[in-house]
Design a protein around this nucleic acid. Structure first.
Lengths: 133, 133
DNA sequence: CCTTGACCTTCCTGTTGCTGTAAGGCTTAG
DNA sequence: CTAAGCCTTACAGCAACAGGAAGGTCAAGG
């Protein structure tokens, strides 16, 4: 099938599929006589796998590792488990960071008079010299 | 003062200060006879303000708006309040998204045997055709 | 036979917010 | 006189694509 059908079936934009090929995330497919890329069922499976991994928040390098494991029947599930656990910790750290920011923002919102006056606790807070962590 | 001292006082890398100038986030400072940038106390205040706004998660365009309000004695605090409320919602949405991802990852981690076997629930899940949201 | 539209190809640019590096000039101390 | 430690500009690169230009291909319709 051509790239647009592969895109439809995999849920990835054609542009993304070409991009994945360009960075050697997927292997280049065969070409038809006219130069068009031709995808097979196995290619579609890999593309779907990548789409899902990306949706789970894995970056391209992590996808590379996951894809290697996916394609390797000699894998040990412990390796997969390790990768995903690491990602979970990563996401947790990110959430904690955002939650901190959120609390600070909420404080700012609560402190501001929210009126026609120029006086503003938010501006004051942002302008106040703060020690640099 | 020269840029390196402005960097020290503001907590921003000198490179970042030059970058902010290049994108017209801050106005170009006067130059000494030798071409070096010379910063005044007011410049440092703006830089500190920017550093703090960035730490709060505001992007450059939002910082532009905040900085305008900061410098404008005719501002109404309601405008500032609006900007920060919007940001708060933005952060909340981001957190919700990450929390969803986190739960999905936790499920994966829990489902994987985590042993020497090739059989892996994570791989199975990522490989399973999933409807595209 | 010609055209139209929908595909496909490659290549280049832009996005965000910087950071790194190169190549060179200025300043101060030894 | 030279070495260090500043400063300057300008260009490249990161992630993960998206958009668009310029052109080739293919099937259908008049």
């Amino acid at each position: 099938m051509n790239i647009s059908e592969a895109a439809k079936l995999s849920g990835l934009p054609a542009k993304t599929i070409r991009y994945y090929e360009s960075i050697d995330l997927i292997s280049p497919p065969r070409r038809a006589a006219n130069g068009y890329r031709r995808y097979e069922a196995g290619d579609i499976a890999s593309l779907c796998f990548l789409r899902q991994a990306r949706q789970f928040g894995f970056n391209i390098d992590q996808c590379r590792l996951l894809l290697d494991l996916y394609k390797n029947p000699q894998r040990r599930s412990a390796e997969v488990h390790q990768l995903v656990s690491d990602k979970l910790e990563e996401v947790d750290a990110h959430i904690r960071e955002l939650a901190d920011t959120r609390e600070l923002l909420a404080k700012l919102v609560g402190a501001c008079a929210n009126d026609e006056d120029a006086d503003c606790a938010i501006i004051d807070r942002l302008a106040s010299p703060q020690e640099q962590s």
